[in-house]
Computed example of a mutant assay.
Amino acid sequence: MYQSIKMNLNALKNNKIFELIVVSVIIISALEIGAKTFQLTDSAVSLTEILDVFITVFFLFELTIRFIGDDDKRSFLKKGWNVFDTLVVMISLIPIDNSEMALLARLVRIFRVLRMISVVPELRILINSLIKALPQLGYVVLLMFIIFYIYAAFGSFMFSQINPKLWGDIAISMLTLFRVMTFEDWTDIQYETMEVYPYSLIFYLTFIFFTAFAFLNMVIGIVVNVMEEEHQAARAEKVEKQPTLIELQQELKEIKALLMAQNK
């Protein structure tokens, strides 16, 4: 009996229509949260309260289905996304009105929108790729900081007399260089220093080459590489879950044997 219920719930969990329904409820939850930021009529407020109860109950129902249908329940809460979903659902059960944790409950309801990531596999792969790429990105960020520091020190020594507001000290110089890297009116800064130091053009061009082009491509390359590894891992896991040809042949033989036994 339990195994039958578990198989049915597992089939429901993996059903595309059910997944679309869950995504639709998450979108409705996002719209309901956004609606509460406006001045609403009493009838609209009542409607949002009803929707809030429905969404919370639905998420609890969906989480229960995933837990019962999971083959390894002991490891259910060892997965990060399951822990996140469980915390969001549990805290969403806290009554908003007349509660000391009302503010926390309201804030957690905002994070229900993030459940879209845990529901859609493609979004999970994107986030997992970014998280796994962080250690490698850390070295790129460190190298970028070194380049920023060197150029900021040089700019502070050379250009502080031209415009102290932009080059007064190394901290302000780094902020100015960040503006240059993002191309936010950087030509105004460049032309101002070129009036005194015409060759300062080399300073800006080399800095932009290192930061905006070289390091940006490094970051993109790392993220794309990790994302490809995540896609390969997801495909391998999907293949492992599918029955092999030998298993299918064995099952067909068993069915054939049962049918022959019944005919006798």
Rank of each mutant, 00 (worst) to 15 (best):
D169Q: 00
Q161L: 08
E122Y: 04
M174T: 09
A171T: 12
I127C: 03
M181K: 04
S160Q: 07
R124C: 11
V141W: 11
N128Q: 07
S173M: 01
I172N: 09
R112Y: 05
I170L: 07
Y149R: 11
S129T: 03
F159T: 06
I110F: 11
R115W: 02
I110N: 06
T182P: 08
R112G: 11
I162G: 10
S118I: 04
N163E: 02
E184Q: 13
Q161P: 01
L123Y: 05
I125A: 11
I117D: 05
L143G: 15
M181I: 08
A133E: 07
R124M: 06
W167C: 10
I110S: 03
T176N: 10
F183Y: 12
R109K: 05
I150Q: 11
Q136I: 13
L123W: 03
R115L: 10
I117H: 00
P135C: 08
I117Y: 02
V120P: 02
A153N: 08
G168K: 00
Y151H: 08
M116E: 01
P121L: 00
V108H: 04
V113A: 13
D169T: 01
I172F: 02
D185R: 08
V113I: 15
L130S: 03
L134M: 12
Y149F: 15
I131T: 08
V113C: 11
R112H: 05
T176I: 04
L114D: 03
V180W: 06
V113H: 00
A171N: 10
Q136L: 15
P164E: 01
K132A: 10
L137S: 05
L166M: 04
L143K: 06
M158V: 12
M144A: 15
L142M: 14
R112K: 06
A171V: 14
Y139F: 14
I146F: 09
L126E: 06
F157D: 15
L130A: 11
A153C: 10
A153R: 05
F183Q: 12
P135F: 07
S173E: 02
M158D: 04
L166E: 04
F183S: 12
L137C: 06
I146L: 15
F148L: 14
I125R: 09
K132H: 01
K132W: 01
P135H: 03
F145M: 15
I127A: 09
L130E: 07
V140I: 13
R115K: 07
L143D: 12
V141C: 14
F159K: 04
D169L: 04
I110Y: 02
W186K: 10
